[in-house]
Simulated assay, not measured.
Amino acid sequence: MTQLNVLGGPLDECGQDPVTGFYRDATCTIGPEDLGHHSICAVVTVEFLAHQRSIGNDLSTPRPQYGFSGLRPGDTWCVTARNWLMAHEAGAAAPVRLAATNQAVLGIVPLEVLRGYAVDVPDDTSSLDG
Rank of each mutant, 00 (worst) to 15 (best):
G130A: 12
A94D: 11
G116R: 15
L35S: 02
S39K: 00
E112I: 11
W77C: 10
D124F: 03
L59K: 07
R24N: 14
L35I: 12
A94W: 12
A26Y: 10
V121K: 09
R115A: 15
A94K: 05
Q103K: 11
L7V: 09
A87Q: 05
A104L: 05
G36W: 03
C78I: 07
V46L: 01
D129R: 12
S39L: 02
G74A: 03
P64T: 04
A100Y: 10
V109T: 09
V121E: 11
A94G: 10
M86I: 09
E47R: 12
L111V: 10
F22Y: 15
V109F: 07
S39E: 09
V113R: 12
D129N: 13
P10H: 05
V105R: 03
D75G: 08
S54A: 15
D124L: 01
L128E: 15
S127Q: 11
D129F: 07
A118S: 15
T27K: 15
N5W: 06
Y117A: 06
N5V: 06
L111P: 07
G36F: 09
V79H: 01
G9K: 13
G70R: 02
W84D: 05
D120W: 11
A93K: 02
S69L: 06
Q103A: 13
T61F: 07
D58M: 05
A81M: 00
